[in-house]
Design a protein around this nucleic acid. Structure first.
Lengths: 199, 199
DNA sequence: GTCTATAGATCGATAGAC
DNA sequence: GTCTATCGATCTATAGAC
C-alpha cells in the first residue's frame, strides 16, 4: 500500500499531464485516475472536485517559473555575460515543452477563471521578476549598472528576452535551438544599447 | 426567413462569443444554437462539426489582428511620433477585451491542435509584422531610419511594445489605460535609444 | 433548410462493500 | 482508504416531419 502523500503526488503528477495535454475542459477525471493508477473514488478522496484538482496543479506548476535567475557566481563577470547566461536559462525555461503546455493550459482558463492566471503570475513570473530586479540592484551597488529604476530594468529585460520568440512558441510555431541562442545575444545587445552600453 | 449567409454569420458570431467565453471544451453546441437563435439541426447544417465551427471562428478572428499599422498620413511626422501612434493603436488592439479572449481561446487549444495556433499566427500577427516591416522600409528610403534589417526592426518593436503588459493582460491581471499610455512612450524611447536615437 | 425529439456516448461525482 | 459499479446530467450529432 502506497503512502497517502505518495498517492497524492502521483495523482497530482498524472493530473498535470492530463490537464496540460487536453486542457481543463477535455480532461476527464477518468483519465487522471487511470494515469495515476488509482480508482476514481480514491481520486475524489484526495481532491474534492475537478476544480480543486486544477487549482492544485496550477500551484505546483507555478514553481517551475521561478528558476535560474539569481544563481551565484556571477559577480566577477561583465554584465553582458551575466545577462546572456540569465537569458539563456530563462528562455530555456520558458520554451521548455512542459512549461509551454502549462502556460497554455493556464491562459486557456483565464477567461472563465481570472484568479487562476493572477495566482500563477504572482506565484511564478512575478517572483522571477523580483529576482532579476535584485540582480540589477546588486550590479548597481557594484557600480556596473547605472539605470536608476531596477524594477523597470528587470521588466524591460524579460520583455526583450521573450521577444517575438515566446509569442510564436505559445502559438505552437517550431523553435529551433540555434535561433534561441542568436535571439539571446540579440536581446542582450538591444537591451544594453538602449542603456548606453555599446558592444 | 433569414438568408442563409446571414444565418451563417449569426451562427459564427454566436460561436465566437461562446467559444471565447467558455473555451472550446466547455462550450456547447446548444449554447451556440441558442445564442444564434437557431436550432441545433440548423447549426449542423451550416457547420458539420464542432471542430469545423471552431476553425471558422479562428479564421474570422485572425483578421482582427492585422489592424492599424500602415495607416496613411504619417509621412510628415518625426519617426518617434509615428511609432507612438502605431504603438497606441497596436496595443489597444492587443489589449481589447474581445481580442484578449480570442487569443486565450486559441492558445488554450494549441496543445491539442497546433495547426490552429500556426494558422492564426500566419493569418494575423505575421501580417501585422509585415506591415510594420514595410513602414520601416519606407522610412529607411526616406532617410529617417538607418537600421539595415527592417524585418528585425519590426520584430523588435512589437516585442518591446508587448512588453510585460501584454503578458500580464493575457494572464488576467488588470490593466488601466494610463499605464498603457506611459508604457507606449517608454517602449518607443527604449526602442529608439537602442537604435541610437536619443530623446 | 429548418424544426422537434432523441439516440448514443461520456462526464463528474457518489453509494456501498471491504 | 480503496475498490467496483452506477447514477444523473450533459454533450455531440442525427433522424424524421414539415
Amino acid at each position: 500500500m502506497a503512502l497517502s502523500a505518495e498517492r497524492r503526488q502521483r495523482i497530482l503528477d498524472a493530473a498535470t499531464d492530463v490537464f496540460c495535454q487536453s486542457g481543463f475542459g477535455r480532461a476527464s477525471m477518468d483519465a487522471v485516475a487511470r494515469g495515476a493508477g488509482v480508482s476514481k473514488a480514491t481520486l475524489y478522496n484526495h481532491f474534492a472536485s475537478k476544480d480543486v484538482l486544477f487549482q492544485a496543479v496550477v500551484e505546483q506548476v507555478s514553481g517551475r517559473f521561478i528558476a535560474g535567475i539569481d544563481t551565484p557566481g556571477r559577480k566577477d563577470q561583465p554584465i553582458r555575460q551575466s545577462l546572456e547566461e540569465i537569458g539563456r536559462e530563462f528562455l530555456a525555461m520558458l520554451l521548455d515543452a512542459r512549461n509551454l503546455a502549462a502556460v497554455r493550459l493556464i491562459i486557456g482558463e483565464v477567461q472563465g477563471n481570472p484568479e487562476v492566471g493572477q495566482k500563477f503570475y504572482h506565484a511564478g513570473p512575478e517572483k522571477a521578476l523580483k529576482a532579476l530586479e535584485a540582480f540589477f540592484v546588486s550590479r548597481r551597488e557594484a557600480g556596473e549598472w547605472t539605470a536608476s529604476d531596477p524594477q523597470r530594468s528587470a521588466r524591460d529585460y524579460v520583455a526583450v528576452l521573450r521577444g517575438n520568440l515566446f509569442w510564436r512558441a505559445l502559438l505552437g510555431l517550431p523553435v529551433d535551438s540555434t535561433t534561441v541562442e542568436r535571439h539571446v545575444r540579440q536581446a542582450v545587445s538591444l537591451f544594453l544599447r538602449a542603456h548606453g552600453v555599446e558592444g
